Simulated scan of single mutants.
Amino acid sequence: MKKFLLYLFIAVAIIGLIFNLDMVMNMILSSLIFILVLGAVLYGIYYFFIQTPSQRKYKRALRKSRRKHRKK
């Protein structure tokens, strides 16, 4: 009887741990998605409102040049 109660207690603990890990993983995933979206919004604000048009053209040309030389 004592072994049965011990195994039952361990099973309940494992089930509780699995359900808790599921909730924690969902919270971590939602936090990561929020951070990525926030970073994209901040980069968009920086790119379109802080940089001058000549800086944007320079960065675009730099990316194009890197792609061209990387393929060779």
Rank of each mutant, 00 (worst) to 15 (best):
K3H: 15
L6R: 14
Y7T: 15
Y7M: 13
L8M: 11
A11I: 10
A11F: 14
A11Y: 10
A13V: 10
I14H: 07
I15T: 09
I15W: 11
G16H: 05
L17D: 06
I18D: 02
F19M: 06
F19D: 02
F19G: 06
N20I: 15
N20C: 08
L21D: 12
L21F: 15
D22W: 05
M23Y: 06
M23E: 07
M23A: 10
M23R: 09
V24H: 02
V24K: 01
V24G: 00
M25R: 10
N26I: 13
N26S: 11
N26R: 13
M27H: 06
L29G: 03
L32I: 03
I33P: 00
I33V: 14
F34G: 01
F34T: 13
F34W: 03
L36D: 08
V37G: 00
L38D: 07
G39S: 09
A40Y: 08
L42V: 15
Y43D: 09
Y43L: 07
I45T: 12
I45P: 00
Y46V: 10
Y47G: 04
F48A: 04
F48P: 00
F48Y: 14
F49G: 08
I50A: 15
T52F: 14
P53H: 06
S54W: 14
Q55H: 11
R56V: 03
R56Q: 08
K57Y: 14
K59E: 07
K59G: 02
R60T: 11
R60A: 07
A61Q: 11
R63V: 00
K64I: 10
S65I: 05
S65L: 09
R66A: 02
K68E: 04
K71L: 10
K72V: 03
